Computed example of a mutant assay.
Amino acid sequence: MFRFGHPEYLYLLVLIPILAFVQLIFRYQRKKKLKKFGNLELINHLMPDVSYVRPVVKFYLLLLALALLIITLASPQFGTKLETVKRKGIELIIALDVSNSMNATDVQPSRLARAKLAIERLADKMVNDRIGLIVFAGDAYVQLPITSDYASAKLFLSGINTNMVPTQGTAIGSAIRLANNSFSHQEGINRAIVVITDGENHEDDAIIAAKEALEKGIKVYTVGMGLPDGAPIPVTPGNQSSFMKDNQGNVVITKMNPALLKDIANVGEGKYIPANNLRAGINDLIDELGGLKKSEIESKIYTDYDDQFQYPVALIILILLIEFIILERKNKLLKNIDLFTVDEHKRDEEI
């Protein structure tokens, strides 16, 4: 796996052929000027220490060094890198209700869509914290283990829908208990759970689950999605022409249960946020979470690309060293082992 971190610098490589062409022109002009003084073979004998090849070699070495410098500026990257970083933050797990009632549109564009927007807003405001994601309906599942990678959190969030959990229902207590067991094993970290649901709990005792969380030092916050008057549940998400009906053929109206969500938040020493005041409520939640004491968190982060600029830099140093060692004129002490001696006729042609 290979890429350039700043590929825009590679456009500078166009300078290499331009400079090479300019150098050819100068050599041609020099050859023309020398011919004005007489026979080239005679001139060469008059200047025995002058080398016509060394300056060319030095020039192309500098040209190669320039090309490598441009590649270095483009930041070559390849391989994978595992980094261990230490940050001060908290751990937060969001439990999101994905039961069919979350498709209701009493909160626009729908309860679930509004909840996902709220989570995105929350993730955008988090700094140096860990975040995890649980989805639940009749059962609860870990969608994203606790992580510091907010981009991954948003990616997983985008794929959430009400078809993810096969068992319908609203098992808030199961979601809270699963969240309790999904935090890291590192000690001394402040933790919180945010349950986003319409509150229609039919499966278990969420109050007891919130007490269990508080006993572990984990605060529980609730965000109510929906309005007290309720709304019908679309058979197909986004389609308002067909709604779910009960056994008697009546359209099912789903209503938010604010009383239960308030009780859960009170027992969990958190806070209840109603959907009709979601923007201000999320801001308050962010402030409350920000007020929790930050602890040092050690995280391992995978990066797909690792900078490898040291290799072209090493080559540049080596090339410049060689260019410095090579003299433009022939060395009298080493003239018998001149590596740059070429056939006289070929040299005349190059001049």
Rank of each mutant, 00 (worst) to 15 (best):
L63F: 09
L178R: 14
I131T: 04
V22L: 15
A265Y: 05
R87C: 01
R87D: 04
I208V: 12
Q23C: 01
T170N: 06
F309S: 06
Y9K: 06
A74S: 04
K35N: 04
V98R: 11
E200T: 07
K33T: 09
D306G: 08
I297K: 04
N336V: 00
Y302F: 12
V135W: 03
A153H: 12
I172F: 10
V342G: 03
K86Q: 14
D343I: 04
L92F: 11
V313D: 00
I146E: 08
I207H: 03
N103Q: 15
L66F: 02
E298I: 14
E328A: 01
T303G: 07
G132A: 07
L214R: 15
L42K: 15
T236A: 06
P234A: 10
G38D: 05
V267R: 13
K32R: 13
I273Y: 05
Y9G: 07
N180D: 11
G199K: 06
P232T: 09
K255G: 06
S158H: 12
S158I: 02
S99C: 14
R114S: 12
I286Q: 14
R3F: 01
D229Y: 08
E91M: 12
I322W: 03
E298H: 05
A153S: 09
N247G: 07
L339V: 07
L69S: 13
K332I: 06
E344I: 12
G138I: 01
A210L: 08
I146M: 14
I337K: 15
F243A: 10
L214I: 07
E8M: 05
L73F: 04
P166S: 14
K262P: 00
Q108I: 09
V194R: 05
I16C: 03
T84F: 01
G281I: 00
V194G: 03
L285E: 05
N331H: 03
V53C: 02
D348F: 06
F309G: 03
E215M: 12
Q108C: 00
P312D: 02
L34I: 03
V127I: 12
N283K: 14
E215Y: 02
A209H: 07
P55C: 05
G238Y: 09
R54H: 09
R177F: 01
I322N: 01
D139L: 04
Q108P: 06
I207W: 01
L318S: 11
E344H: 11
E288W: 02
T80E: 15
Q23A: 04
D304C: 02
L61P: 01
P228R: 10
I301H: 07
R177C: 00
K335Q: 13
N201E: 14
S299L: 05
N181M: 12
F59V: 10
P76H: 00
N190Y: 08
S295Y: 01
I93K: 07
F324Y: 12
A153L: 15
F59N: 07
Y150Q: 00
F59A: 09
H345M: 09
Q143W: 11
F136K: 06
F21N: 08
A123L: 15
D205T: 06
L15K: 03
I286A: 09
D284I: 02
S75C: 02
F26S: 07
E298K: 15
K88R: 13
